[in-house]
């Protein structure tokens, strides 16, 4: 039943990840919901096919554990984020709500 699949463009390396929830929280905030909790008893965090990387890199900016999130196609670690994944175009714009 594990949802993490090599078809998702990113995967979580559980040797490095502390299961801190930050990627889950951030992905939920932008309503992509691509980070999920695996149903197995360990309740590890996983990335599913809803992930749109490289179109979105927001989880990489808020992951505190080096090496935790990996580019599936190359095996390249993306935490801390290399320069090419935190360009201005990739940032999610936030505006002050209209009062």
């Amino acid at each position: 039943m594990a949802t993490q699949s090599k078809q998702a463009p990113l995967f979580i390396d559980h040797e490095m990840c502390t299961e801190c929830r930050m990627c889950y929280v951030v992905c939920r905030e932008i309503d992509l919901n691509a980070v999920v909790i695996a149903p197995e008893a360990q309740h590890l965090y996983e990335i599913d096919e809803r992930c749109i990387y490289p179109g979105c890199t927001v989880c990489l900016m808020y992951c505190p554990a080096p090496g935790s999130i990996v580019e599936t196609s190359t095996g390249r670690s993306l935490v801390p984020p290399p320069a090419d994944v935190h360009t201005d175009e990739l940032k999610w714009p936030r505006k002050a709500p209209k009062s």
Binding site: V26, T57, V58, C59, L60, M61, Y62, P64, P80, P81, H86, D88, K91, W92, P93, R94, K95, A96
Partner: peptide, 14 residues
Amino acid sequence: DKWVYPTGFSGPGA
């Protein structure tokens, strides 16, 4: 460089 400056959102908060 690694943890403070990379930012996932643009706008007034960041």
